[in-house]
Design a protein around this nucleic acid. Sequence first.
DNA 1: CTTCCAAGAAGGATCGTTCGTTTTCCTGAG
DNA 2: CTCAGGAAAACGAACGATCCTTCTTGGAAG
Lengths: 182, 182
Amino acid sequence: MHPWGAFVKNEYSVYDLGVPKVSDAHREQRREQILIAAWKCFARNGFHSTSMADVIAEAGLSAGAVYLYFKSKEEIILAVASQVFGGISGRMAEWSQHEPPPSPAEVVGFLIQQPVLARAQAPGDLFPLLLAVWSEATRNPVLADLADEIMAALRQQITGLFERWERTGRDLRIPARDLAPV
Amino acid sequence: MHPWGAFVKNEYSVYDLGVPKVSDAHREQRREQILIAAWKCFARNGFHSTSMADVIAEAGLSAGAVYLYFKSKEEIILAVASQVFGGISGRMAEWSQHEPPPSPAEVVGFLIQQPVLARAQAPGDLFPLLLAVWSEATRNPVLADLADEIMAALRQQITGLFERWERTGRDLRIPARDLAPV
DNA sequence: CTTCCAAGAAGGATCGTTCGTTTTCCTGAG
DNA sequence: CTCAGGAAAACGAACGATCCTTCTTGGAAG
């Protein structure tokens, strides 16, 4: 469900004293609310140029409230980065199971046009954030491991697609010109 | 020579009063010294996680001295980023004029293995910095323009290579498997 | 009444930058 | 060649701003 790991279950029972005031669902919703705000801020200004004050304002909460759900800015960054990587992986996984399999040229076109060689000035919602995460991954060991997993999964899905294409008996070569579109 | 533009020439004559104490060459050298230090710091920690104190210490100078040669951190970032882009462009331009022309597979392999799909944990000197610059380019208009120029030049050089390869009468198709190396 | 979420002011640290001072070194006179 | 004169280079302490985080207080919900 959530890429950043299983949510810590509330250990209280409704029959105990000291019942928490809000449900787990509410807590989850608050986390989501904060992450969405952080997502927007990070996409706009990158990780280290957005202040906690920015995130807090975007979320429409207070500092104290935000720090009830995340114990540091670092934790929010990791959560958002994991979501970004998870999103990429999920989208690719979904797309890689289409029937009939897309041609190798389509696969490569998807890869280089969507995230990599797109113009810096015409980013989708994901592109600036993906770059930020990727850049951060060169410094943060946790993110580096995540990035490696994603890369491995991507490679596997791509080769899987190629194999399925090959089984249809068609050409497994890509016209070079498709790789440098005007 | 220097990607960030022509160095402002010393307007004093040796016959005037107020002759500067150091030569233009010395000034140039100092700028270079600061930029090298900044390069190292930025490659290590990214733009916004390296403080001016880091750069100043790495350069072995004082704050006042550094601010004699660059008027802000932003200016240093732009200078380094321009150097990075210039380096990429230069390397590709050089490589694209090899004789005989490299095969399309080689070209693509160079592109995806060198900067793009390399493992985040095994970066060359340039990779983390390239990511940082690229990420910054999604926010900084000056860098965005620079990035677009670089991209356009790259595309042109790639298509040029493909055309030269085609003129040798050989196959202009790339085996798909080359694009997802194990 | 008890419990804890939410708020927001405040703390301590660090940031980029400036500025008054010292040092360096070229110049021109003796 | 020597030496004062002076301007630029270099220094580094200090400044205001901003950063992330904590902590006290208020109030809603069971």
